[in-house]
Design a protein around this nucleic acid. Structure first.
Lengths: 340, 340
DNA sequence: CTGTTAGCGCATTCAG
DNA sequence: CTGAATGCGCTAACAG
């Protein structure tokens, strides 16, 4: 049933260590025996047992992907499948396997990561989020376990390999785009305030607004859930203001979706009555009516680069920490009007 | 650095087998020693090494999820993240881990599955597709390796545990809905002809059409790629016909997306000039304008049930094959017009 | 109720 | 260039 190394050893008349060497293509084995052994492996249907191998070499050639709590909701945001595409593309090329986290709450995730690390399920993990004071990250640092983070680390950012966009500048520039179109009362809708993406994009927005000589209104900045329903709440808050904004920068396409449909429900026309710019350029953003002007952060590359960096790190623990910045670009569509 | 079972054995003054027994909560160990050992485990920071364990018990408590070729494209269809949500929810509850396939071509996938199986990476796999004469499936059957399939197996369906919708009836009924609205010239757009979902839905469509006394036109049935771009091609074919259909049933929301935008480009209005019904009820379908009338196949449950069935099967290899049918329901939105 | 022994499948010294 | 011996960390008889 199960063909082991010693089976092929017997079949070939060599020792099992020789077979092992053939597997790792050790140069000290003669071509003749290599051929002989390889033939036997094929004939017998031999495949290395990964667990036995992992046990002795203390490495798994597997990486874990940790989604934000909660994985179930996260997968509803097209951002994650897309980043998974990027990751899985390089894991596949490098012959690594990919284990997905599945915890719903922060606690569950933490436990899961502990198991992954202590149980040596994986050689490293990529963290698909970046929040302030994250237990998981602290744990990983403490244990000196290889990981890379997508996004900007809250602290020790020089010691943590991470791949990110320049979200601050992007936030600034996209807001400036709105300003150039004549908008002044511009609101910001973001996800949770302790998510670093949100903070960066918001800071960029604030910097752009600072150049305007209208006051930087606190009530124009709204934080909500990273979900379509988040967009709804945010809009309702915004519309209840005495003086409404004429434009809004939204930190995630999925939220924009909710913003859009709620605005529509309330009878506002986009972009005539309210302009909208967004982030991510998930394929959603070209489907909505109007299609969204958004910043394309190249999600796929975010994933691919993080996987690549992680694998480098797992093979060479001494690999220095680095920051990898993925360029973004603006995609102008139909959700912004020119104010005259 | 790494705490092993014998470390805690020494620390506690018992043998390693005793420690092993308290890990598995063996009833033959006294409560006193259990407590003592557990304390030591905690103090020392002991965590079981999964590879060592797997090696001896010959089980991994992990399942593999095989996406259709190509995983990279597949992840672009919201169907897959959603089914992953369902799967990961139950794997998590059952304390299983989840390994994702990442092959792009059929060959790559096949190799990957072989590794998973022979290398004992996983205890079982769930196949997220069903096509005629699939190498992967044949391999799995041959090896008698636990697997379940989402969709209907091409053959031996009684011996293969699968979870599916009644796609035939759904296809029939949704077509009948169109007919009830007065449509007669109804086209069908589906994915690849050797994908079983397509075939079932198409057969349903044909059965409904058979009751009409207009000829069952071959040129009204189009097969294309499971992508947005597939929708475009299909529409162009359809519009080139002498006598155009007034309605079309599309076997996947993502294809519908392409259909919709292409139709729009050609200046046709939906649903006035062309009605459209679709399948899956992926969240896309409520975003499009008009929102899609579609059949909700309960993707999440498709995933959850398949994972559940697979895990049952891995713990008990004798578990009989079963067919699990997930109910669908119609979601009526704005993409169908009444013909008078 | 607990300890001793053996072995899972493989990689890696150390000899030769 | 190859073989023998050892051990990775754990579980599972088999004793007692």
């Amino acid at each position: 049933m199960l063909v082991t190394i010693s089976d092929v050893a017997k079949a070939t008349g060599v020792s099992s260590s020789t077979v092992s060497r053939v597997i790792s293509d050790n140069p000290r084995i003669s071509l003749a025996t290599k051929k002989k052994v390889r033939k036997a492996m094929k004939d017998l249907g031999y495949y290395p047992n990964i667990n036995a191998r992992n046990l002795v070499v203390k490495s798994t050639k597997a990486i874990g992907v940790i989604m934000p709590a909660s994985a179930d909701k996260a997968l509803q945001n097209p951002f994650f499948p897309e980043i998974l595409r990027g990751i899985s593309s390089v894991t596949h090329d490098m012959q690594y396997s990919l284990t997905l986290s599945s915890g719903k709450t922060e606690d569950e995730i933490f436990t899961e990561v502990q198991r992954m690390v202590y149980g040596s399920y994986v050689d490293g993990v990529v963290l698909l989020y970046s929040r302030v004071n994250d237990r998981v990250m602290n744990f990983l640092r403490e244990k000196d376990f290889p990981f890379v983070m997508v996004g900007k680390p809250y602290e020790h950012s020089a010691e943590i390999t991470h791949v990110d966009n320049d979200n601050l500048t992007a936030g600034k520039e996209i807001t400036e785009h709105l300003i150039e179109q004549g908008h002044e009362r511009i609101a910001f809708i973001g996800g949770s305030k302790d998510l670093f993406v949100t903070m960066d994009r918001e800071t960029g927005y604030e910097e752009a607004m600072a150049n305007l000589d209208i006051p930087n209104l606190e009530e124009y900045k709204i934080h909500t859930e990273f979900l379509k329903s988040g967009g709804r709440e945010a809009v309702e808050q915004l519309l209840s203001l005495k003086v409404r904004p004429t434009a809004v920068v939204v930190s995630d396409d999925l939220i924009s979706l909710g913003v859009l449909s709620t605005l529509e429900e309330y009878g506002l026309r986009i972009p005539q009555d309210m302009s909208l710019v967004s982030f991510n350029n998930v394929y959603l953003s070209e489907i909505t009516r109007p299609a969204l002007t958004t910043v394309d952060v190249n999600i796929y590359e975010l994933g691919a680069q993080s996987a690549k960096a992680l694998i480098e790190k797992t093979v060479n623990k001494q690999e220095p920490a680095k920051r990898i910045i993925i360029p973004y670009k603006f995609v102008y569509r139909d959700s912004v009007s020119k104010l005259t």
